[in-house]
C-alpha cells in the first residue's frame, strides 16, 4: 500500500493488523505521534489525515491506501512557538498530539459555515480529546488562544 506522510510517498508492506500509529512509529521511524493508550482514550496519537485530526491508534493502515497524513514532524505552525512561550507541556509526551489536535481544531473552527467564537471554554471543550497528565492545560489553552486570535 501507498501512504503519503508529510509529503513523502511511502510504499509499505505490513500485517493488515497494523494501525496507522504503529505504521508511523515502527515502520517509518516517525515517532512524533505517541502511544498513550492505544484505544482512542488519550489523544497522544493525534495526527492529521487529509487535514483532519484523528486518533491514529484506531485506524488500520490498510484502509488508507493513497491517503495523506501529516504528523508533528511535518508541521511548521505558529502554535508550536506558542507552546514554547507559554510552557504548554512538561514531559512532552502528550505534546505532539496536543499540537496536531490544535492545528486540526483551529482549522475546523475556521472552515465552519458558522464559525464559533473560540473562547477559552470553547477551546477547552474542543481540545478535551487530548489528555495531559502533567496538567499543562491552562498553558496549552493560552498558547492556542493567542494563535486563534490572529
Amino acid at each position: 500500500m501507498d501512504l503519503v506522510v508529510n509529503g513523502d510517498r511511502h510504499t509499505l508492506e505490513m500485517d493488515p493488523r497494523t494501525t496507522l500509529l504503529d505504521a508511523l512509529r515502527e515502520h517509518l521511524g516517525l515517532t512524533g505521534a505517541k502511544k498513550g493508550c492505544d484505544h482512542g482514550q488519550c489523544g497522544a496519537c493525534t495526527v492529521l489525515l487529509e487535514g483532519r485530526r484523528v486518533n491514529s491508534c484506531l485506524i488500520l493502515a490498510v484502509t488508507l491506501d493513497g491517503a495523506s497524513v501529516t504528523t508533528v514532524e511535518g508541521l511548521a505552525h505558529p502554535v508550536q512557538e506558542k507552546f514554547l512561550e507559554h510552557d504548554g507541556f512538561q514531559c512532552g509526551y502528550c505534546t505532539p498530539g496536543q499540537i496536531c489536535s490544535s492545528v486540526g481544531m483551529l482549522d475546523e473552527a475556521l472552515s465552519d459555515d458558522d464559525p464559533p467564537e473560540l473562547s477559552d471554554a470553547e477551546i477547552r471543550e474542543r481540545m478535551s480529546g487530548n489528555l495531559c497528565r502533567c496538567g499543562a492545560y491552562p498553558n496549552i489553552v493560552r498558547a492556542i488562544r493567542e494563535v486563534a486570535a490572529r
Binding site: V72, L84, D87, F89, G92, P96, I99
Partner: peptide, 21 residues
Amino acid sequence: LRRIEGPDKVTGAARYAAEYQ
C-alpha cells in the same frame, strides 16, 4: 528560561524509551 528540550518536544524530535531505532 524556556525549556532547553522544548523545541525537540514540539517538533516530535524528542525520543522516549520505545522510540530508539
